[in-house]
Design a protein around this nucleic acid. Sequence first.
DNA 1: GCCGTTTTCGGCCCGACTGTTTTCAGTCG
Length: 570
Amino acid sequence: MRNDEIASVFDEIADMLELGGENFFRVRAYRNAARAVRDYPEQVAALSREKLDEIPGIGADLADKIATLAATGDLPLRAELKGSFPAGLLDLRNVGGLGPKRIRLLAERLHIRNREDLRRAAEAGQLRTIRGFGPKLEERIVKSLVHTVEEAAHRMQYAEAALTANDLIAHLRGCAQVKRVEVAGSFRRRRDTVGDLDVLVAASEAEPSIRRFLEFPGVTNKLGAGETKATVVIGDKLQVDLRVVPRASWGAALVYFTGSKAHGVHIRRIAQTHGLLLNEYGLFRGERAIAGAEERDIYEALGMDWVPPELREDRGEVEAALEHRLPALLQRSDLRGDLHTHSTWTDGRATIREMARRAAASGLEYFAITDHSQRLTMVHGLDSERLREQAREIEAVGAKVSGIKVLRGIEVDILEDGTLDLPDGVLEELDWVVASVHSKLEQETSAMTRRLVRAIRNPNVDVIGHPSGRLIGRREASGFDLREVLRAAHEEGCALEVNAQPDRLDLIDTACMAAKRAGVKVVISSDAHHPHDFAALEYGVNQARRGWIEPSDVLNTRPLNELRQRGSRL
DNA sequence: GCCGTTTTCGGCCCGACTGTTTTCAGTCG
């Protein structure tokens, strides 16, 4: 069983326990465990008992349950809970305004078992007969029932959200009372997708900033506005929350609203051990604020180094910050080259020359043209002959465009059995070989693992492109045994790509962590199909930073002569 | 159900807002 499957079981149990009115802390233990398993860089099903014990949040009982899940694929507890109430009841958690307590009331008093029952009862005005339910809540529930299905599922890609975020920041800066603005939340942590935007403003007066916020041209729906906060919808689906805080609370509020929730919980617990209280207004000893205006002061007062937002997922960064051993994370400016790009020779939309010019203008020292191989007939993939023709053009461009070295590369298809789409003799002539899976992505885990490992074992392969093949919101990652792939990659000195396209971001953050731990290098690549795609490198850097990647973990931070020294054909 | 520099019991992060109540429970982030 994969980590995400085990995590889902724990989450499901947490939901059901909660609905059953179980001790809140027991519920929370399951949720914590779900998160710990989901984030864990190796498959927990394969871990020994000792290793399982080392995972924070997994104790003796949950270690047992993981073992049972690994062995049988299910848990007696889950089956038992499932039998104890109607299936449709759990789904009501997704209805706004309804939590476990209210759902239980609805089930007990009105015998509501699913959305349909709820809708009927709400429309008949029955809900308000329950003490604690009133007309407003009833109305909210009816409204939410119509919308929740799409709403709950949809997260927006980071790059898309960034467009709105930047416009909004600029707009808010146009208000004289606004001293500082930042988009906090998962956006600031640079997650691959964001559910909503949490905008934080420090202002001398709240009212004008809120008014300014409500006047943002993209606002399509105003969901609420109070004295210090407001919520709107921008465009057709992006919810944006604004919080206005006094300047003296800026740092505390930024920590608080940047999250993650788990990170916040962890550092508030640390504050507690020092006899301090940490909330969004500051860090307090009794009544007295000892920090709050800047994030750094708060972390420092807790004996920690300032934690870059990308790391704030409670994946060990709190401990590392306490021990002053946080990584010096990769930055965009560390990248000297881009080793995965396309041109009009296949499905790129610009010539090699146009790509070279933009690469140079993007501050790169070198880049590789890696067009597709023959198998991808629909994009006119290159066979040996056209590849050699292309070499002549690359040479000609290299002579004409200054300030950039153009490398000859290929993105060669990894065929179903793990062999490559071009003969070794042809690949040997190239400077750089990306090998990628583009077909049969739904292979079984074991077959996909063998396929990738075989490609990695080919000495001509420098890097595996977009290893999981996931497309955010459209295609699941293909299953393979990451540990086995990393072991092979380590043995062969083969790198794994962090594809920077905003809908790929593949490897994901936790896989980056695992690669680093396994001693496998990564390559941050734009996979540019157009000159403006070089800008995407930033997104790849974000994802790598979330995976604790430092410049030395990345091949394309190296100058070209050092890259040549690693024994490749460069 | 987890966990321990107050360590094997007794805690477990924090506050705003809403809607509903006359003092607070539930939800939400």
